[in-house]
């Protein structure tokens, strides 16, 4: 088993001063080069937790976060951390495909250009490699200058994955990446997720337990802001220790 890539320690988060905590005392490891799935019913805090890992919750004005989130041992909430560099290292794919209203090529090139890539041949190479890794190269190679919106929903989501890996992140966070896709497109993205762990550490939020079972090595079950249980996926889905986990995965609530 690999080392922990990210670690959270007693993470509390609330959306405003008076709101009840959205996350309560979450302590867990996310292992390198593996897929960690976060499951739980709507509003359980799994997406909130994911967004703490690359500080996307910074945009919530009154959010309060205590506890620690470590990336390779470095506290990502410490004042000397450069948030933009953190987000480059910890990439994110969102629930609904959100390509920019640019061409396919420009979407993938966006991140590298932010980081200062200017040489067109270098950018071309990054675009090709990223699209290959996202399994979109064969479909997109002849239409790189077409608008990203001309792709189907599933292709758009794979484009968003290509865009995310074009900046060579170390961790890839995926927030219900298939919830807006049809079953065939979902299967392709899941296959991709399993391939991505070779090069990246993947954390994926899903409302679909079968998906968690299919793609992940480790599963974490959240309920009402608490991390109820986490461990190897096959253990969680066959012999959970907590009664609530068992009730959820057997479909007694959710």
């Amino acid at each position: 088993m690999e080392e922990a890539k990210m670690v959270t320690k007693s993470l509390f988060m609330s959306y405003s001063r008076n709101a009840p905590p959205a996350l309560k005392d979450v302590t867990m490891d996310i292992r390198a080069n593996s897929v960690t799935a976060f499951i739980g019913p709507s509003g359980c805090g799994k997406s909130t937790f994911l967004r703490c890992l690359n500080r996307m919750n910074d945009f919530v004005r009154d959010a309060r976060i205590t506890g620690r989130v470590l990336l390779d041992g470095m506290d990502i909430y410490s004042p000397e951390v450069d948030v933009t560099n953190l987000r480059r290292r910890v990439g994110m794919v969102f629930q609904r495909p959100n390509p920019f209203p640019f061409s396919i090529r420009e979407n993938v090139a966006y991140g590298p250009k932010l980081l200062g890539a200017r040489d067109e041949s270098v950018i071309d190479e990054i675009v090709e490699n990223s699209l290959r890794s996202a399994g979109l190269w064969e479909e997109a190679r002849d239409r790189l200058n077409d608008m990203a919106t001309s792709l189907s929903g599933g292709q758009q989501q794979r484009l968003c994955i290509a865009r995310a890996i074009a900046v060579e992140p170390e961790v890839l966070l995926m927030d219900e990446p298939t919830s807006a896709l049809d079953p065939i497109a979902t299967a392709r993205v899941e296959e991709l997720v399993r391939e991505l762990k070779r090069d990246y550490t993947v954390a994926i939020v899903t409302h679909n337990m079968q998906q968690a079972a299919r793609v992940s090595d480790t599963t974490a079950f959240f309920l009402m802001g608490e991390l109820v249980e986490y461990g190897p996926t096959d253990v969680i889905f066959t012999t959970p220790t907590d009664q609530r986990t068992e009730d959820y995965i057997t479909g007694r609530f959710g």
């Binding site: 690359n54 996307m56 945009f59 933009t84 560099n85 953190l86 987000r87 480059r88 990439g91 994110m92 969102f94 609904r96 959100n98 390509p99 920019f100 209203p101 966006y110 991140g111 932010l114 980081l115 968003c160 865009r163 995310a164 900046v167």
Partner: peptide, 15 residues
Amino acid sequence: VPREFRDASYALGGT
């Protein structure tokens, strides 16, 4: 302008 565009840019390390 959809918030998703901003999210995508920030998530890629955009200032």
